[in-house]
Design a protein around this nucleic acid. Structure first.
Lengths: 202, 202
DNA sequence: TCTAAATGTTGACACTGATCACATGCTATT
DNA sequence: AATAGCATGTGATCAGTGTCAACATTTAGA
């Protein structure tokens, strides 16, 4: 299957298309992704992608699912490097934000309103929940060690998730670009610590 | 200017286009907004909008700016109804989330990756910061009354903002739709209180 | 009043997502 | 080994889109 010459059959077009699409959104932004451009980039006719994806939306879904899996892996690894549950949660948060920073376009795809009818794609919901599960586990750990308040893990996890997602979104949208922030990393870390400690005095 | 018959000149086409666009995104979602459909809806030729907006993106920007102003007004009003700073912050958060709930498509437009080159539109940044200013003011108030920790108001405000924005985004994206949540309002309120108190025990 | 600017129209171009019938090459059964 | 069937890729085509240039009409200011 590894001849130099182009065969009529590509061999692994599905993956080639996903890679090409990823390259395209990195270079030109996710909102201007064109299925035809993806096909061109993969060196294939404009209708070939339809043999592997029902429509453009389904290609985007596949790309988002990949992203959720990657996000889950990276946050999971971040959690494992730290013993204390609270520090692990911060570590997860920083890894999450770092993922968003390194993959802004894919992040937009995962959480933005680009994919239509999300509820029609169970694999999307599932991989999203798998990523959330890392945070839920960490919340459970923190509750078990007595570090966190005795609330439902799902609730604590959503609190953390919403916070880091909000930070990541605002960052990507450029809300922090022209703000008076000396070190963006320190800024993020402070925001996360603030989330653990709360806003109330004492 | 109020004849029944259609004049050659519309009279207030700019506003009519904005209204039509708002109606369109409410009905069909912001990502499928078509400038031509907007023009049709306003009863005008497909290129007429270009006399009032440089391109489609600029119409979206105008729509987003309107949204930021509305969001600022509603949160400001919510803050004024409550005496204590902390309660006011919760009130702001709930108003923010409520705005997102009532105007999901516009919210996507304001914070999602639909508008290109946000940094090229100073009025967008400005109206966004004006909306944030409400939260900064409330943070200052809370610091002054001694309710909140003695940190920079900008930092506290961003902490709150990120949290509610995260909640609103995840809600709109349907992340809470199939979660085991009895009352969504209570869920939001708990998340906001958790943000004030922090996750740490005691 | 006359002219210039503002506003709306027509027709066109290049591009997109999608579908159709058709061509090609792989693979499994005989 | 031959071939039938199927998965995969192609070309032509359609409707819809953003945008532009050239033209038409109305309004407003000298």
């Amino acid at each position: 299957m590894n001849q130099e010459k182009q065969n009529y059959h590509h061999g692994d077009l599905r993956n080639a298309l996903l890679e090409a699409a990823l390259k395209q959104i990195r270079e030109h932004g996710v909102e201007k992704l064109s299925l035809r451009a993806v096909a061109r980039d993969a060196g294939v006719s404009q209708t070939a992608p339809y043999r592997h994806f029902k429509d453009k939306n389904q290609l985007l879904v596949a790309l988002a699912v990949e992203g959720y899996e990657q996000l889950r892996d990276e946050t999971q690894q971040a959690a494992q490097t730290v013993p204390a549950a609270a520090d692990g949660m911060t570590s997860i948060g920083l890894a999450y934000i770092d993922f968003a920073r390194r993959n802004p376009e894919r992040y937009k795809l995962m959480f933005g309103p680009i994919i239509h009818d999300r509820q029609n794609y169970p694999e999307l919901q599932e991989s999203g929940f798998n990523a959330l599960q890392v945070v839920i586990n960490q919340a459970e750990k923190g509750i078990a060690t007595g570090e966190f308040v005795d609330q439902q893990p799902f609730l604590l996890a959503n609190s953390c998730w919403a916070k880091v997602h909000g930070i990541a979104s605002l960052m990507i949208d450029g809300f922090y670009d022209c703000a008076p922030i000396p070190s963006i990393e320190a800024f993020f870390r402070t925001l996360l610590e603030l989330h653990l400690r709360g806003l109330f005095k004492k």
